[in-house]
Design a protein around this nucleic acid. Structure first.
Length: 374
RNA sequence: GGGUAGGUGGCGGAGCAGUCAAACGCAUCAGACUGUAAAUCUGACGCCUUCGGGCUACGGGGGUGCAAAUCCCUCCCUACCCA
């Protein structure tokens, strides 16, 4: 069960302030949702995550199903000792990342066009059918099936406050024909998800349609017509900000404004204001934590590549205006050393800082909305 | 003093006559990363280049041979064993 209240609508944009109430506490929106794929925000424990100002996490159905198994994990709040709000993604992203994403070795925001889809209409490593998807486990190669029913059943076992409908995250710049067909499938699956869900968890339906305005409108209207508790906006969201903006323009107006909207998997710093102004309440993104593990720290002036030797002589904090634990206690030279020495602590400190920095960044955007600045 | 095994690019370490500027790993440098197959991946890594190629290289020196990191001689060095 969730309750969502819109506290303020911006006069200047679609941005809004909201309060999401779950059985595990409140979330002030707009909010970043840090990614805890395997019931863990990599390198950080639950107490540390709280200290990064994170309000809500998203974990992953597909990965937890494979390891340790949803039965063994049980209630994920308890399992990972996270008593605050939590979502689970449905496994729909893995239809992309282990499918076309793997075939072509690129991400969902790639600018490359998938012309090969026109020929085969099917990724090499998985099989997408109208009923669901046959996967090969990336862990042991074992073949297994996941469709809307399976995803919901697993998500019910995991017990997150918010769960997502099983969808196909479509590959970037696929042909309109492919997207159209995929959209129909995702819509069918959406209905099944609603039908089979027995728990009182909030279920979000996912809008697809790639970069095609009429398909986005169609999808948004359709998903909105069903009894979902909120919305996910997924798929290829455009490699350019103008495209993302356009996609939101063709999606948000067709969704019930009283329900929360979650943009799936987007949230670089320079995307944030853009997507929030487009009407997004929640968004998850691996960037703060993933980039941290490859040695990148985000700061007011952009980002720092802590692998570079020049930082060995730099005794400034990562960002002098950041009040996080890392910036208060450590200098760039040490963080550079840890990164270059591949010390686990380095990954942890950068992950902590990046999440805190991102969350603070969103906090400021909330203040801007409050003060009628955006 | 005697014996044995060795000396290869920044390091470790393959190769033991031609397809070797020399596998592979590490280090270094550059780049990528947006619902995490992600503490990952890609590329460069002797010197020069009009990007076709050219030059210098496998401890030093000298041979054999069309051709040597690879065979022979010699010197130097290292490790271990015996005195």
């Amino acid at each position: 069960m969730i309750e969502f209240k819109v506290l303020k609508n911006s006069q200047k944009s679609q941005a809004r302030l909201g309060l999401l109430k779950t059985d595990h506490g409140l979330v002030k929106t707009p909010s970043l949702v840090p990614v805890a794929t395997q019931a863990c925000v990599k390198t950080l424990d639950s107490q540390e995550i709280e200290k990064t100002k994170s309000q809500i996490l998203i974990s992953n159905t597909f990965h937890l199903f494979l390891k340790p198994g949803d039965e063994l994990a049980g209630d994920i709040h308890e399992f990972m000792n996270w008593s605050r709000p939590l979502m689970t993604d449905s496994g729909g992203f893995q239809v992309f990342s282990l499918g076309f994403g793997k075939d072509f070795n690129f991400g969902k925001v790639s600018s490359e066009k998938l012309s090969i889809i026109e020929k085969s209409n099917q990724p090499k490593s998985i099989k997408i059918t109208d009923k669901g998807v046959w996967f090969f486990s990336p862990l042991d190669g074992k073949k297994f099936f996941m469709g809307p029913e399976e995803s919901i059943r697993i998500q019910e076992n995991l017990g997150a406050d918010i769960i997502f409908a099983f969808d196909e995250c479509t590959p970037p710049r696929a042909t309109k024909e492919y997207i159209k067909k995929s959209l129909e499938r995702t819509h069918e699956w959406a209905k099944i998800c609603l039908k089979v869900k027995k728990s009182d968890q909030a279920l979000f339906g996912i809008v697809q349609g790639s970069c095609y305005p009429n398909l986005r409108k169609k999808s948004a209207s359709f998903i909105n017509s069903l009894e979902f508790d909120g919305f996910g906006i997924g798929g290829d969201l455009g490699e350019k900000k103008s495209i993302t903006k356009n996609i939101l323009k063709n999606t948000i107006p067709y969704l019930d404004p009283s329900k929360p909207r979650h943009l799936l998997g987007i949230g670089k710093l320079d995307d944030m204001e853009n997507i929030i102004k487009g009407g997004v309440d929640l968004f998850d993104c691996t960037v703060p934590t993933h980039y941290a593990r490859t040695g990148t720290a985000f700061v007011n002036k952009g980002k720092l590549d802590l692998k570079k030797t020049k930082f060995l002589k730099d005794k400034k904090p990562l960002d002098k205006s950041c009040s996080c634990y890392v910036c208060q206690n450590y200098k760039r030279n040490y963080l550079c050393h840890l990164t270059r020495a591949k010390e686990i602590t380095g990954l942890k400190l950068l992950s902590f800082h990046n999440l805190y920095f991102f969350n603070t960044f969103v906090e400021r955007i909330r203040e801007k909305i409050e003060n009628n600045l955006i």
